[in-house]
Nucleic acid binder design. Structure first.
Length: 343
DNA sequence: GCGACAG
DNA sequence: ATCTTGTCGC
């Protein structure tokens, strides 16, 4: 990688012992459709389903167990409140341009996990030049998740750390602020029309696109035989078909992003962008099946975890990898081959 | 008991 | 998300 252009690398953050957001669950939980199911338990050894383990270690880990029903009420209210701020049309000039001229920086975010742990994770934000798709900024940071994964509420688990990353970028390298973010997950293709891509978009005020690897089965959408037939009809990179919800609204598009990929991507509007532009941009960012910004965020966050856990050395002092060129350049060298992505 | 389930 | 070896293909 071009170390000279990378910034924002940080030592692992202190593992703050956050209090759990939601208390242990009672046996009277009610579930609605496919939503709101608890993530698979990952107890060290024989895990009992009595909810005991979350009690015993309530101070140490969290993000396990099912939140109280009251928490879901709060989360739903918050989603409804923020949903009113979503803009589902193009707001920037480059979005209307066939070649996206004017677009220079595309961001990608992701959260990767430490294998046997549902709390420790690495949140990453990368910025790539467009259309070169070269990484010009990287920020990986260890975080302690406080909320468990519950389908329909992914944002409450991951978004706070992604907003933090955007804030750090805004403070330290505002010139590298991406003009759009590709998010691993859905936008308006969601139980309540407000997925993680919308959530992050509203909180950062950045255009966002939701890119999911699997179909979220909501509003009548099903990964059934008919859906699979449509997928098989996708011939070449760029082929797509609309995902129409029960109300007749188009919630997103299934997109074949690579000539040799069987599974499509599920693209939906996050914020400040039309579905048409979202699909076109996603395709413009694909060297492989996964859009490069999201792919790089994923690769780098996993590498960060591997390096952080793999090197037994002192976790605190011996940090700082080869930070060759600290300054990527607010002013790249004359005649440099650096893509012109700066302000 | 089995299956479903954005990440 | 993560657990996992080889395997098929460019």
């Amino acid at each position: 990688m071009r170390a000279g252009a990378l910034r924002g690398l940080r030592p692992p953050g202190g593992s703050v012992c956050n209090a759990r957001l939601a208390g242990p669950t009672g046996p009277t939980e009610r579930r609605h459709g496919n939503e709101g199911r608890t993530a698979p338990a990952r107890g060290a050894s024989g895990s009992d389903n009595t909810g005991r383990d979350t009690r015993d270690c309530a101070m140490a880990r969290e993000a396990v167990g099912r939140p109280a029903e009251e928490t879901f009420s709060l989360w739903k209210r918050e989603q409804a409140r923020l949903k009113a701020r979503v803009v589902d049309r193009d707001t920037e000039a480059w979005q209307r341009d066939p070649a996206f001229s004017g677009l220079q920086r595309v961001g990608g975010v992701d959260v990767s996990f430490v294998k046997g742990d549902s709390v420790s994770a690495c949140a990453s934000l990368v910025v790539l030049s467009y259309p070169e798709l070269e990484v010009v900024y990287e920020d990986c940071r260890m975080v302690s998740l406080t909320a468990p994964y519950v389908s329909g509420f992914l944002a409450f688990r991951e978004v706070p750390f992604l907003v933090d990353a955007v804030r750090r970028l805004r403070e330290k390298e505002p010139c590298l602020m991406p003009q759009v973010l590709l998010v691993d997950g859905n936008g308006v293709l969601h139980h309540r029309g407000f997925g993680v891509a919308c959530h992050l978009g509203v909180l950062t005020d950045l255009p966002c696109v939701g890119v999911a690897k699997k179909l979220l089965q909501v509003d009548g959408l099903e990964n059934n035989a008919q859906h699979k037939e449509k997928i098989q009809l996708l011939q070449a990179r760029g082929d797509s078909f609309p995902l129409m919800g029960g109300s007749g609204t188009i919630l997103g598009m299934a997109l074949k992003s690579h000539d040799h990929s069987t599974k499509p991507l599920y693209v939906s509007v996050g914020h400040k962008m039309s579905l048409e532009a979202a699909v076109r941009l996603t395709l413009g960012c694909c060297r492989f099946r996964i859009p490069e910004p999201v792919r790089q965020a994923d690769i780098r966050s996993r590498d960060y975890i591997r390096r952080t856990l793999g090197v037994p050395g002192p976790p605190a002092p011996g940090r700082e990898r080869n930070q060759k060129a600290q300054r990527p350049k607010a002013c790249p060298k004359e005649g440099s081959e650096e893509p012109a992505v700066l302000c």
